[in-house]
């Protein structure tokens, strides 16, 4: 591929299918490609539709018509239960539970926690990935492999000691206590960013070194902008991951002030041994909790595809 080694300036190109050479041109390929996409979209959407249908069904009547494609006895009750607008008695009467839920506060807690984790984790992981990919030092790969092993550490090893540590730090039932273990790094993020830093055109960095730029400046002004779309992708995926995290926040954040939305929605799952979930409330909760992240994807998603570095990364 040495024909394409012209050094280009880093610039942003607005992508559109007409001028985007990565897009297929042949009409036959286009037809089959889009057909395949359509099939994937349908298989993906059907169960989601089923959740929507269930979220608007009456929990008590639902299994009277288990195969109905439309909501059974259309009701906003489940949504009200999720938003905490129903009294415990109403909730129980509708097949929900008598526990209260403070939807707005839990959502806010989740937003703060997931943002906190994502911002710090990605910043620190990017620094580490830079050291593992673009700096040369003895023992680099060995240390990286050691970090990589963290990916394989089973949860049962970490959960109790980390809980005790957070307790010793006096951070139980605080948002910082929930976020702390994930804020410094994850082997996943380091590994991911390292692979992209490998692709950075070294001549650009070379030139910066000759110009006398510090490593911090090269990292923050050259390397990070070059992999920005990938950082955004990673940030979105990590945000979603921590948004959905359950066990750890369940143990650490038990007060109203520190309860995350996933934990709050736990009251819609089966409360007694071998009981039934509040199906409608559970689905309504899952969908409502997913809305903020979906919006986030639509906003930041543009950055994943919208700004494409022409050939800074090759």
């Amino acid at each position: 591929m040495s024909t394409s080694t012209r050094t280009k300036r880093v610039k942003k190109v607005r992508a559109s299918s007409a001028e985007d050479p990565a897009m297929a041109k042949s009409p036959v390929s286009k037809f089959f490609g889009r057909l395949a996409l359509a099939i994937v979209v349908i298989i993906t959407l059907f169960p989601i539709y089923w959740m929507v249908r269930t979220a608007f069904s009456d929990n008590r009547a639902m299994f009277g018509e288990p195969l109905s494609l439309l909501p059974v006895d259309f009701t906003l009750g489940p949504i009200e239960r999720v938003l905490g607008l129903a009294t415990p008695d109403e909730a129980i009467a509708e097949g929900g539970s008598g526990a209260s839920i403070n939807f707005g506060l839990y959502m806010l807690n989740s937003i703060i926690t997931a943002t906190l984790i994502t911002v710090f984790q990605i910043a620190f992981s990017a620094m580490a990935a830079y050291a593992f990919a673009l700096l040369k030092w003895k023992g680099r790969d060995a240390v990286f492999n050691l970090f990589l092993i963290a990916l394989m550490v089973p949860v049962i090893f970490t959960i109790l000691p980390n809980f005790v540590l957070i307790k010793e730090l006096g951070l139980l039932n605080t948002i910082i206590g929930i976020a702390l273990p994930a804020m410094f790094m994850t082997p996943f993020a380091i590994f991911f960013l390292r692979q992209f830093f490998f692709g950075v055109n070294l001549s650009i960095i070379e030139a910066a070194v000759i110009d006398g730029a510090s490593q911090w400046r090269i990292f923050s002004r050259i390397a990070v902008p070059l992999v920005w779309p990938q950082i955004i992708t990673l940030a979105l995926l990590q945000f979603i991951f921590y948004w959905n995290d359950y066990l750890w926040p369940l143990l650490v954040g038990t007060t109203e002030e520190s309860k995350l939305i996933t934990v709050g929605l736990g009251i819609f799952r089966s409360q007694t041994p071998a009981g039934n979930p509040d199906w409608a409330g559970l689905m309504a909760g899952a969908l409502l909790a997913a809305i903020p992240i979906f919006v986030l994807i639509l906003i930041f998603g543009k950055q994943i595809v919208g700004s494409i570095q022409s050939s800074g990364v090759k």
Binding site: S29, G33, L37, T44, V305
Partner: peptide, 18 residues
Amino acid sequence: RFTRSMIIRGVVVLPYLI
């Protein structure tokens, strides 16, 4: 190769949001 639609990208990742 076949689409630049943000909607499709959003849809594809929807299951992961749940």
